[in-house]
Design a protein around this nucleic acid. Structure first.
Lengths: 110, 110
DNA sequence: AATCTTTATTGTAATATTGCAATATAAAAA
DNA sequence: TTTTTATATTGCAATATTACAATAAAGATT
């Protein structure tokens, strides 16, 4: 095998997994960090920021976009990619909820 | 190639990527959800909860543990795995920070 | 001790990911 | 229009992931 059985899990579980997976590579975390650092969407020099070749960066951007972490399109000679706050918030609230529930958990044997 | 160039990114980026990657599969999200739902650490029936064979579940648990999402050991006939609040909090604060920064961002072209 | 129960490990096949060179595409500049 | 600049796509090789059958390991039960 090797293919993930996504149809056996809930939509929410699949949604979280998709978002998390997109950030499961340091290059993509670095892209997110960069998009956050530069207070603009004209980010044509992501390639220069990363220790990766241009096609590789382009591929990572594509995956971030497919997962919904970033949005935007290219505009002429410059790309215009922004973080999608909606997706970030989904992740944030998912983990916040876990954290709160763990806080009030009685039995903690580990 | 195929190997990730982890040495070219910051420790924090690698740390976030490792945690996110561990949750980048719906089965592992389902395991986290289950560990949170059952208010105890004796969780010997995770296998019955998931649509996966026992070795596969064991492997996913191993990956969650390696990444630091869960902690614990087996105790006799029952496993005792708990969520590691520290890791969850790392993810939560990472995304919360992004969300806050996005909130106050001036230029949003997308 | 022999058996049962539970989890881990090994081996293997199928599939996915990562990375880049080469090339294509498309808008901007000359 | 030609050239430049910036990004995307294709094709391919190396590696990683996913899944499970078979088996091992180890504590619990009889």
């Amino acid at each position: 095998m090797g293919a993930t059985k996504t149809d056996h899990f809930t939509d929410k579980q699949n949604a979280i997994a998709t978002l998390a997976k997109a950030l499961g590579h340091p290059a993509r975390v670095a892209i997110v960090d960069y998009l956050l650092k530069v207070d603009a969407c004209i980010c044509g020099d992501i390639v220069n920021e990363l220790p990766l070749a241009q096609p590789t960066v382009s591929q990572h951007l594509k995956e971030l976009k497919n997962a919904g972490i970033i949005k935007g399109e290219i505009e002429g000679n410059t790309i215009c990619y922004c973080l999608d706050k909606n997706s970030i918030d989904k992740l944030q609230s998912y983990f916040a909820n876990i954290s709160i529930k763990l806080e009030t958990k009685k039995k903690d044997c580990c």
